[in-house]
Each structure stands twice: as structure tokens, then as C-alpha cells.
Nucleic acid binder design. Structure first.
Length: 383
DNA sequence: AAGACGTGGAC
DNA sequence: TGTCCAAGTCT
């Protein structure tokens, strides 16, 4: 009797503070336990308890910027095979790196990747710096990547805040402020959850959680290790977060592209300017891409005199900030034809080795009536 | 500090 | 089909 009273009193004393159902603080341990059971397997991710070398962590993180895990996979393998060390990559030519990167997008990453490899070799004796500040000073490494490489490669106490982490944290705390203004607050809250050990696992766990459970649509809250402390979930508003500032859409631009084939099977190519869109990538000659492009004037922009014929349809491509429609002209010229200034002939059979961005691969596919790199982007008939 | 900077996949 | 978005950085 007395014992029962005591136990009852104790349980009340213990439970009362939680009675409010106020969300308890999220525990890193719960996330890490979930991660230990559900961590995804990826080419750059070491087995449990092991650590990926800094070079591989860095390479994967650069490739993963705004790019899906699935897309990155083959590129990561290719780069690691071709250039197994940062020294090897530093020794490569920029053109070789751009050609290997072609198709991945955001080509400034490839130029910075190359510059960063050289900086690590020249300024750090080939050893990646193990501090956030040291990493931040390298080209192509910003807030996110410095924290990611620091945490994953060196277990530095940092939390990388990417789209996944933004989603997880804004839901966890029901942050009403919109992105990107809420970024500092998110970073602060995420850091407050960081455990004293296993920074790298914590970072990857956060991202895995965002990628698999705490997804943009239909998050699987019932499977979430942070189900209980999640404020958005408690309010049934998990899909509302994160709030984002509205983005405006770009205006359509049009232009013409010229595919000229020499009788012996070479096509005319050139290299784009050092700066700006698709900088230093390869393209077929073409007009400027403008809002007021006039098809009637297109042939005036042709690289050389030839019997141009306009191909039916257009090539459609959408960049991050504007959609593009390219009308393609084709011609055949004799073997004796000279390449105009700043242009060169390239064998059709080797053209896939060129640093051709996807939009240019679409143009060539259109001209040669071959399958386009991306399905469903070609309009066959247009008139 | 807002805009430039690619691409492919999911729904 | 169109829209969103994916491990962002640089200027």
C-alpha cells in the first residue's frame, strides 16, 4: 500500500512535466540510431564505421550540388577511375575535365573543381585542409560543401545545410520564415542538434532523412525517428514547409544553330566564351539567343556560305533561368572547305568525346535524326 | 543580394 | 504537361 502510493507519486512527479505534450527536443541519438539501420549505400559512402578519403568526399560533394544521387553515380566512378588522386586531377587539362563533365550541368563546377585540385596541390601539398575556414578558401567550396567535407571527411563539428536539411529543420520547428531568408536560423537550429561525436554520420543522416523520409511531398512521418518532436507534424502541416520565396520565370529566347557536315564526315564546332552560360564548352555555330530573334534573318548568322536548309521543328531546352528554342539549319560542304576563324572541324564519329553540353547534343541529335539525350524534348513536327 | 548558372527525373 | 526540385556557388 505504502509502496504503491510511493510509486504512483513518483510516476506523477516524473510525468507531469511532459503532460503538456509539448514537443520534446529532437535527439541526435534517435537520428543516428535510425541512420545505422537505414543508411543508403552510395559509391562515395564508406561502410559503417569507415571513412571516405577527403578527395572522394570532396569530388562527390561538388558533383552532388543541385544534382541527384542517381545522376552523379556514373560521373563519380568515371572521374575516380580517370583521376584517382587530387594530384592526378590537378595534372589534367581543363579541357579534359570539361569533356568528362559534359552533361552534368553547372559547368562552373568543373572549372572550379580543376582550380581547386590545383590549389590543394600547390597551396596544401596535396592534402585537403581539415578546417572549415581552410576548405571555404578553396574555389567552388561554399558554406554547404565546406561543412559537408569537414564533417564527413574529418568529423569536424559542422552541419551542412542543403535542401534536405532545410526541409527537415523547417518542419521540425515549423519555421514560418521563407527561404532563403531563413537560412541562418536553420543553420543555427541544425547546429544546436549536433552531437559531440559522429559529425559526419549526423550530416549524412540528416540528408538521408530528408531524401527518404522527410520528402518534399507525402513525407513518411510514421517512419521518422523525429516524429514526436516535429512541430509541423504535430500540427499536420508537414507538407507546407519549407516556405519559399516565389521565383519568377524566365522569358523565352530563340536562336538558330548551324550544323554543317563536310563531305568526309567532319562537322564545324567552336568553343564558347570564357565567361557566362556554358562557358568554355563546345557548340555548333549559331546566332545569339534573344527574345526578339527573327527567323527570316537567321541565315545571315551562318558561319559560311552553303546551301542551308531549315530542318523542320525546333530544339527545345530549358535552362535554370530561361527556356530556349533553337531552329536548326543543316548543310553539306566539300572536303576542301576551310574552317572560319575560331572554328574547327571535328569528326562526327568522335563528337561524343567533345565538351558538348546537353543542349548541343540535342541539336546534333535533331540534325542527325537520332535519339535525343533527353526523351520527350524534341518536337518532331512544327511547321 | 538577387540573379546567373544545367540537367534529368518524379508526379 | 507543366512544375518542382536535387548534397549550391559566385558575383
Amino acid at each position: 500500500m505504502l509502496l504503491c502510493d510511493m510509486l504512483w507519486a513518483m510516476s506523477v512527479a516524473v510525468r507531469l512535466p511532459r503532460r503538456k505534450k509539448a514537443a520534446s527536443a529532437p535527439q541526435a541519438a534517435d537520428l543516428l540510431a535510425w541512420y545505422d539501420r537505414h543508411r543508403r549505400v552510395m559509391p562515395w559512402r564508406a561502410r559503417q564505421g569507415e571513412r571516405t578519403p577527403p578527395y572522394a568526399v570532396w569530388l562527390s560533394e561538388i558533383m552532388l550540388q543541385q544534382t541527384t544521387v542517381k545522376t552523379v553515380g556514373p560521373y563519380f566512378e568515371k572521374f575516380l577511375t580517370k583521376w584517382p588522386t587530387v594530384e592526378a586531377l590537378a595534372l589534367a587539362s581543363l579541357d579534359d575535365v570539361l569533356r568528362a563533365w559534359a552533361g552534368l550541368g553547372y559547368y562552373a563546377r568543373a572549372r572550379n573543381l580543376h582550380a581547386c585540385a590545383r590549389a590543394v596541390v600547390e597551396r596544401h601539398n596535396g592534402i585537403f585542409p581539415d578546417t572549415i575556414e581552410g576548405l571555404l578558401a578553396l574555389p567552388g567550396i561554399g558554406d554547404y560543401t565546406a561543412a559537408a567535407v569537414g564533417a564527413i571527411a574529418f568529423d569536424a563539428p559542422a552541419v551542412p545545410v542543403d535542401g534536405n536539411v532545410e526541409r527537415v529543420v523547417t518542419r521540425l520547428y515549423a519555421i514560418e520564415e521563407a527561404l532563403p531568408a531563413a537560412k541562418p536560423k536553420i543553420k543555427e537550429l541544425a547546429t544546436s542538434l549536433l552531437p559531440s561525436q559522429r559529425s559526419g554520420d549526423f550530416a549524412q543522416a540528416l540528408m538521408d532523412l530528408g531524401a527518404t523520409i522527410c520528402s518534399p511531398k507525402r513525407p513518411a512521418c510514421s517512419l521518422c525517428p523525429w516524429h514526436e518532436p516535429c512541430v509541423a507534424r504535430a500540427e499536420g502541416r508537414q507538407e507546407e514547409f519549407p516556405h519559399k520565396a516565389a521565383k519568377k520565370e524566365g522569358k523565352l529566347r530563340r536562336g538558330a544553330a548551324f550544323v554543317v557536315v563536310r563531305d568526309d564526315g567532319f562537322i564545324l564546332l567552336r568553343t564558347r566564351p570564357d565567361k557566362g552560360l556554358l562557358a568554355q564548352m563546345t557548340e555548333v555555330p549559331g546566332t545569339a539567343w534573344s527574345h526578339d530573334f527573327n527567323l527570316a534573318d537567321a541565315e545571315a548568322g551562318a558561319p559560311l556560305k552553303a546551301g542551308w536548309r531549315r530542318l523542320p521543328g525546333v530544339v527545345e531546352h530549358t535552362f535554370t533561368h530561361f527556356p530556349l528554342e533553337l531552329t536548326v539549319f543543316a548543310a553539306r560542304v566539300p572536303k576542301s572547305s576551310k574552317a572560319p576563324k575560331d572554328m574547327r572541324w571535328s569528326a562526327v564519329k568522335d563528337v561524343h568525346d567533345e565538351a558538348l553540353p546537353t543542349v548541343m547534343r540535342k541539336v546534333l541529335a535533331h540534325a542527325f535524326a537520332m535519339p535525343a539525350p533527353a526523351r520527350g524534348r524534341l518536337r518532331k513536327s512544327a511547321r
